[in-house]
């Protein structure tokens, strides 16, 4: 049985919010990230190792989402795109003022390389019936974010499980 409205049902499995990254993948962030976590993997520091193993430099796989976080400020921008817009759309459409992410999976495909221009798409995979947890009453949903490079090759898929809810005792549709 499903108790979802037709407009939310219709979004399941649909690619939404295709967006290009704001800048090409670059090594400065690779080194900043490796430095921040003291990652001495020679793949990222020694070009001879990168040439031998990965056909040239690559970015650490776990940096996938880094390439899509918007600049803190950019000229002429009147609204910041949210990396997980569907999550915020669902909170609003379902009248669930609170939300948490409960689980995050990243699957790594082709390596991401300096100079790559990545594109992302968001896909709603599922929305659960209403459930009550210790946080409150609401629904779990799964959102996938697909990342491809300029050649159209898949470089990764992130999957987020969110739980949108109302605290016990609050009314449906209360503004966030």
């Amino acid at each position: 049985m499903t108790d979802l409205s037709a407009d939310i049902e219709a979004l399941i499995g649909v690619e939404q919010y295709e967006e290009a990254g704001e800048f090409p993948v670059e090594r400065g962030y690779v080194w900043s990230t490796c430095s921040a976590v003291e990652n001495g993997n020679p793949l990222f520091w020694d070009d001879d190792v990168a040439d031998a193993l990965t056909g040239g430099p690559i970015a650490p796989p776990t940096m996938l989402s880094v390439w899509f976080r918007p600049h803190h400020w950019a000229p002429g921008r009147d609204r910041v795109a949210l990396p997980l817009q569907i999550h915020f759309d669902l909170k609003e459409a379902l009248g669930l003022p609170e939300a948490v992410m409960t689980e995050n999976t990243i699957v790594f495909h082709d390596p991401v390389r300096p100079g790559d221009l990545l594109t992302t798409r968001q896909i709603l995979r599922s929305v659960s019936p209403e459930k009550t947890t210790k946080l409150g009453t609401g629904r779990f949903w799964v959102i996938e974010v697909e990342y491809t490079n300029q050649a159209g090759a898949l470089v990764g898929v992130e999957s987020y499980t969110g739980f949108g809810y109302r605290r016990a005792g609050s009314e449906a549709g209360v503004a966030p």
């Binding site: 020679p42 793949l43 193993l53 776990t62 995050n104 999976t105 990243i106 699957v107």
Partner: peptide, 12 residues
């Protein structure tokens, strides 16, 4: 460096 991540799931 030859270790290659395929998948990672985490819970905070």
């Amino acid at each position: 460096p030859r270790g290659r991540l395929g998948r990672m799931t985490f819970r905070m």
